[in-house]
Amino acid sequence: MLRTGKKIFYILWGVLLIYFLYCYAQNPAIFSVEYLKSFISSYNDQILLVYIILSIVRGFFLIPSTPFVIVGALLFPDRLLLVLLISMIGIMLSATALYYFSDMLGFSEYLEKKYPNKVKKWESKLQSSKATWLVLGWSFFPLVPTDIICYVAGIIKMPYKYMFTGVFVGEIILVSFYIYSGGLLQL
């Protein structure tokens, strides 16, 4: 089941990549900054709604939030607080979904069979009184996906409030930095 899902994902990813390369070869201008600005501004009324939907849905596909946060800051430089709110709602919804549905996704049995020592090690770390700090640090560090720690926390049944608090504090700091940095790019 897991291998079939991976194959389908890689095939879809490859098809999408080939499609974008084909589009670029046919008309490179559609990937220019000017074209993208004009395309986005032609949908000015709907763009906020699309941004909200994409920010919420992206977590269910394990797509990183960073590009969405930065794009939000660039699209809505006069509404940075709203971008922060939308981003955090999307991040926390995906963190919660991954936590609660980690067993349903079926990876827990696979991970426990393949990496029993690592699962036990993470279990002891995430059941300790300092688990919130570990999750916070993981969430704040931009080079590792927050989704992984939420998933592992759900598998080993870490108390939800510790996972939620750690992700929230770590991500709000990181997302605020991204929004501020993205807002500076407008200048």
Results as ranks from 00 to 15, higher is better:
102 S>G: 06
36 L>G: 11
187 L>W: 11
40 I>A: 07
98 L>S: 01
77 P>F: 06
82 L>F: 12
171 E>W: 03
148 I>C: 07
1 M>N: 14
98 L>H: 13
53 I>W: 07
122 W>C: 02
113 K>W: 04
88 M>C: 01
104 M>R: 15
73 A>P: 05
119 V>G: 02
24 Y>N: 08
89 I>Y: 01
77 P>A: 03
49 L>G: 15
2 L>W: 13
46 Q>S: 15
93 L>Q: 06
119 V>E: 03
60 F>Y: 09
19 Y>I: 11
117 N>G: 11
106 G>V: 01
140 F>I: 09
91 I>D: 00
138 W>S: 08
10 Y>L: 02
36 L>S: 12
69 V>S: 09
101 F>Y: 11
89 I>R: 07
70 I>L: 09
35 Y>E: 05
8 I>D: 07
131 A>K: 08
187 L>R: 14
129 S>A: 06
60 F>H: 08
151 Y>P: 08
105 L>G: 09
162 Y>N: 11
37 K>M: 07
80 L>F: 13
63 I>S: 05
55 S>H: 11
106 G>Q: 06
4 T>Y: 12
144 V>C: 03
142 P>M: 01
49 L>C: 12
117 N>C: 00
179 I>T: 09
73 A>E: 04
36 L>I: 15
136 L>P: 01
7 K>F: 08
77 P>Q: 05
86 I>P: 00
83 V>D: 01
85 L>D: 05
18 I>P: 01
26 Q>F: 01
135 V>F: 01
87 S>M: 05
123 E>W: 02
178 Y>C: 12
74 L>F: 13
1 M>Q: 08
141 F>I: 10
88 M>N: 10
112 E>L: 12
165 T>K: 08
153 A>P: 00
121 K>L: 15
6 K>H: 13
99 Y>C: 08
71 V>C: 13
140 F>T: 11
102 S>F: 05
162 Y>W: 11
33 V>N: 15
39 F>Q: 10
18 I>Q: 08
21 L>Q: 00
22 Y>N: 08
47 I>R: 14
11 I>L: 13
149 I>G: 10
61 F>T: 13
